[in-house]
Amino acid sequence: MATNVTEKDKTLQEVIDWCTDLANELRDAPDGDFYTNINANNVKADTLAMVIRHCRHLLGYSGSMPSEMPNQSEDANARTVNR
């Protein structure tokens, strides 16, 4: 399970890359029986495209909290230095 946004985004990008490669393989596969294989492969590739779109939508999104929070320790250090 991803523990932070960066790790989650890395995992999502790995899924996107894998789905993209698999969809390309399906689309480039030999036709064989035109009416069976080409339709089945296109449906599978289109389904993978939907997964890719959903993963891209999730990139950087971690719920209701903003993805970047100011580093509170830096703020504390700045106040100490400015005194």
Results as ranks from 00 to 15, higher is better:
Gly60Ser: 06
Ser73Leu: 10
Thr80Phe: 14
Ile38Ala: 07
Glu74Gly: 01
Lys10Ile: 14
Met69Asp: 12
Arg79Pro: 02
Asn4Ile: 03
Met50Thr: 08
Leu26Trp: 05
Pro70Asn: 03
Arg53Gln: 10
Glu25Pro: 02
Trp18Gln: 13
Arg56His: 09
Tyr35Lys: 10
Ser64Met: 10
Tyr61Thr: 10
Cys19Met: 06
Ser67Val: 14
Glu7Leu: 07
Pro30Ser: 13
Ala40Phe: 07
Lys44Met: 07
Asp28Tyr: 10
Met50Trp: 01
Glu68Pro: 03
Ser64Gly: 12
Asn41Leu: 01
Asp17His: 10
Phe34Ser: 12
Met1Cys: 09
Pro30Asp: 15
Cys19Thr: 05
Ala76Trp: 12
Ala76Ile: 14
Gly63Ile: 01
Glu68Ile: 12
Asp17Thr: 15
Thr11His: 12
Ala76Tyr: 11
Val51Asp: 00
Cys55Tyr: 02
Asn24Gly: 14
Arg83Pro: 04
Ala78Glu: 05
Arg53Gly: 03
Met69Ile: 15
Ser64Thr: 10
Val15Asn: 06
Thr3Val: 08
Lys8Phe: 04
Met1Ile: 05
Thr11Trp: 12
Asp28Glu: 14
Ser67Arg: 12
His54Tyr: 11
Ser73Arg: 09
Lys44Asp: 00
Tyr35Phe: 13
Val15His: 10
Ser73Met: 08
Val81Phe: 12
Ile38Arg: 08
Met65Phe: 14
